[in-house]
Amino acid sequence: MLPILQLGPLALQVPGLVLLAGLWFGLSLVERAGLRRQLPADALNGLVLAMLVTGLLGARLAYVVRFASVYWQDPLGIIALNFSTLALPEGVLLGLAAGLVYGQRRGLPLWPTLDALAPGLACLGVALGLSHLASGDAFGAPTDLPWALDLWGARRHPSQLYEIVAASGILFASWRMQAGQRPAGTTFLATVALMALARLLLEAIRGDSLIVLGTLRQAQLVSLLALQLALAGLFLRERNAARRLISTDQVGSDPESPT
């Protein structure tokens, strides 16, 4: 674990740096995937930027609203950013909304754009695993396995390494899927399904799960729901593509249809 890299008077937060590097590399993958679909690189970059900036500002403002009385007394405190003072769920929702608005304004087609974003999402998954390895977050449950890590007062599953391996596999699969001829949206939905499946499986050996309904791990319930939605999406995308193909064939085989 290397949460802080001390360079003279500078204390660099390694997990944050790893995430930034992941974002940069992910954006370059998104640009390349966008080129295959004739999507303009500047629009894709702008889309990601709009989502990130709106998400960050939204998360901060939502937190400020939650503690309005404190920030009313100290308005300058609003710009003193700290990761612990962000309302993440609200930030994610606002970031997604900003992405939808920006995409519509720039005329980006929804499903091909999501397909182009898929390898970037998978790349962020790898970076997140690496940042967890650096910080010691997302740690595993205690175990006697020979490859266990000494961490936070116990021998534990190296859950961060499992996470990196799974995310790397998903990134590889997502990138390979860019090459094939598939209905628009399936690369994105398959990537989401694989990420949800990985979380569903790996959460079982985590030592920091949030428990709900007595004994169930919240992340597994959310992952199973995400997996089902992604699979339902794959069904609908393929069914619609098949219907369009059939109707095109019928029009093509009809001698009276206009050409």
Binding site: L200, E203, A204, I211, G214, T215, L216, Q220, S223, L224
Partner: peptide
């Protein structure tokens, strides 16, 4: 998935 969630269920004190 539901079976896996059930298999990996633990009390809050265990995690």
């Amino acid at each position: 998935g539901a079976s896996w969630i059930w298999q990996s269920a633990v009390p809050a004190s265990a995690v």
